[in-house]
Design a protein around this nucleic acid. Sequence first.
DNA 1: GTATGATACCTAGGAGTTCTATGTAGCTTT
DNA 2: AAAGCTACATAGAACTCCTAGGTATCATAC
Lengths: 114, 114
Amino acid sequence: MPNASVDFLRGTLDLMILKTLSWGPTHGYGIARWIEQCTDDVLQVEEGSLYPALHKLEDQGMVSADWGITEHNRRAKFYRLTAAGRKQLHVSRDYWARFADAVAKVLETAPTAG
Amino acid sequence: MPNASVDFLRGTLDLMILKTLSWGPTHGYGIARWIEQCTDDVLQVEEGSLYPALHKLEDQGMVSADWGITEHNRRAKFYRLTAAGRKQLHVSRDYWARFADAVAKVLETAPTAG
DNA sequence: GTATGATACCTAGGAGTTCTATGTAGCTTT
DNA sequence: AAAGCTACATAGAACTCCTAGGTATCATAC
């Protein structure tokens, strides 16, 4: 059986990447570490998921990338939100809110008689 | 671009099916209609997703099925939670709660200086 | 000076879930 | 008898993500 926690990830990785980048340009490795740290390791971002997602977002024009040097003095590709990416972030965040609310309703609502 | 709302569904369909069945045995069509009604059509359950999911849950021993007659006088397969299914419901619900909370943290937490 | 570990990037191949599209059939209403 | 709703089912494709590997640089420990 696949990891149940992982399955939920579907669709939210892009959203969390966009949100992380909304604080400023960051490289892939930093995005992964931030999400893990911020969630007390509840969410773990695999590199095999992260980099393809970043490349896809770049192809879609949601982020742009430039090579630079990190605070650890290493070469890294810094991603930044484009205007389209910022717009998408808001759209996806709203979708997520509606979705999470809907799931909560299913998990909480009791069927009424009739 | 795929439907953003749909993408979030991943992994939660099983959970919502199990939850719906926790109120009592129901047939597939009824499960779909209940989830849609309960979420004001925010979540729409496609039959091409629902039936394979039900069959998978049956194979996994989470639900059992019996043919019966609906209130509309139609032949239908009624699914009921097994003991394993009820256990899985609790596990998945906890996973979901932890996951949704983690996503919320990413969407809300601002990076601190330092 | 040379292991070791952390940082940082990348891809191929496969697994798994969901959607689209389509088909079947019985019951009720018009 | 035609249409609409109820109800089940599957094949094939699309998409996301993981596993498992690989590359390279820098800092630290020995």
